[in-house]
Simulated assay, not measured.
Amino acid sequence: MALILVTGASSGLGHATATELATQGHDVVVHARTPARVAAPASGGQWAGVVIGDLAETGEITDVARQAAAFGRFDAVIHNAGTMHTPEAATVNTIAPYLLMALMDQPSRLIYLSSSMHRGGSRGLAPLADGTASYSDSKLWVTALAMAVASQWKGTATHAVDPGWVSTRMGGPGATDDLAAGHQTQVWLATDDDITPPTGGYWYHQRTQDPHPAARDLKFQDRLLHALEERTGVRLE
């Protein structure tokens, strides 16, 4: 069985993902913003561990990485945590995954939550520093980050996932996609041994799609990594 970290696992897709993995018998460590937000697996039982911290605060991201490191090297990390609100969107959706990667041992698998809205994101990176990034911007950037890591980190299978527009607290009651299918691709990518392509996929309901062209643009990836290094003071090796 695998040791798996799921960020943003207090509710919605994150909680559903963590619960399904725990039901399968995996050791699941969940992240939540505060202790009060930690809910038990919907299937009963207990988590293998809990890490606490607000991913909208850079200092707390560092502490989350420290807490997670105490569990050892993860087999999979699912970067599920997200927000639609400016100015937190860039920090939670892009900077937090970047910093957690840079500060933790390299896992065997990495899964990043993207969104179909990443297609409306901007190639301009100034909002990453000044706090004006939109949700679409942050999701384009984290998708490009996933593609960059897939090409540069050998030995780690890395993918981005569009879970669909589903009826969670973030998605709202008017969402039209299948909520039950919203977490299944993440679970599959974290655990299955027969995935094609083995790394660098952009997925929607276990099928690959083409992301925004910028996500696979090597020059844009390099600019993004440089901007994230400047923003955080931490280099991704």
Rank of each mutant, 00 (worst) to 15 (best):
G59R: 08
Y202Q: 03
H85C: 01
S138T: 07
A70W: 11
P213F: 12
E229Y: 00
T7Q: 03
R73T: 15
G121N: 12
W47C: 00
Y98M: 01
R123F: 05
A42Y: 11
M84I: 15
V28D: 11
I111D: 01
N80D: 06
G164E: 07
T62S: 12
G72S: 07
R207Q: 15
L128W: 06
T7M: 09
P213D: 13
V51C: 00
F220G: 04
H26P: 00
L3K: 11
H85Y: 13
A16W: 08
A18V: 07
L13G: 03
S122C: 04
D193N: 12
W165C: 00
L3W: 15
L100G: 05
G14F: 13
Q24N: 04
A76G: 02
T62V: 15
T158Q: 09
Y112E: 00
Q186N: 05
A160G: 07
W153M: 03
P107D: 10
S10K: 03
P198H: 13
H31N: 03
G124F: 10
T156L: 06
Y202M: 04
I78C: 03
V92L: 08
A81R: 05
P198T: 13
T185K: 13
V92Q: 03
G59I: 07
A18T: 09
M117L: 13
P107E: 14
P127C: 07
A215E: 10
L3S: 02
G49K: 13
Q186T: 04
A157H: 15
